[in-house]
Design a protein around this nucleic acid. Structure first.
Lengths: 115, 115
DNA sequence: CGTTCATATGAACATATGTTCATGGGTAAG
DNA sequence: CTTACCCATGAACATATGTTCATATGAACG
């Protein structure tokens, strides 16, 4: 991979990756996204948000966590664009960012259930 | 880590969990799986394996890693059933475990490309 | 046999990470 | 203005984690 391409075109099962640098950059972001998903608290938060949008207090109370812990984790989830939020008065309502996140969860669950 | 109990095959993704304990156990395993996926080296290994099965040396050379590092990571990937392997002589050929892993990768890539 | 190659594994080390605690900002009501 | 509430954030701490190094196992081969 790193050397000696020999001009052979590999059959890429994954979409349009221009060059190797872009490819590595995507892999980096991909690993980063999975890293963020790889925490039980964040998974529980996201799973709760698949039901409906919620504010920090709702999540903290429903998941038996401190407001601070939830807020910290939501910031991480925000930075990875895994959740979005809107402010309304003194509340901040969070929700799942897009349907890819839901799909990743669905596939992930099917994986762990077949282990 | 909860071991697999075969025999119960379900389909409705988010509604299939009977009680709260099972639900939390699934979320735990799910987070664990994502945690394993959340490392750049392991992502690069898995991405290489989407092309074809490979042995440790191939991966180490292709990804510019030590044999030891690759072997360590492959063990982690094995434990999470993300890769499978077969032995042939003194070689151990690794490959992606199942289609869910590929799907997770595809969805993940689409997610990071839309950021 | 001994040697070499491919892989696995344990120990050690440096780094990364999640939670708690304390604090601050901002909003709505009293 | 004062209070109460919701949320965000920095510091500190304990724990977890990936890599390297050394070593072990096992297979092919001279």
């Amino acid at each position: 991979m790193s050397s000696g391409d020999k001009g052979s075109r590999k059959k890429d099962t994954f979409k349009e990756v221009r060059n190797r640098e872009d490819f590595e950059a995507v892999l980096y972001d991909l690993a980063e996204t999975f890293r963020v998903l790889g925490d039980q608290t964040r998974v529980r938060i996201l799973m709760a948000l698949t039901q409906s949008e919620m504010c920090v207090r709702d999540l903290a109370e429903g998941l038996d966590l401190t407001d601070s812990a939830v807020s910290h984790q939501l910031r991480i989830l925000r930075n990875s664009r895994l959740v979005k939020f809107r402010k309304e008065g003194k509340n901040a309502f969070y929700s799942i960012s897009d349907e890819h996140v839901t799909s990743i969860f669905r596939e992930g669950i099917e994986h762990v259930e077949n282990m």
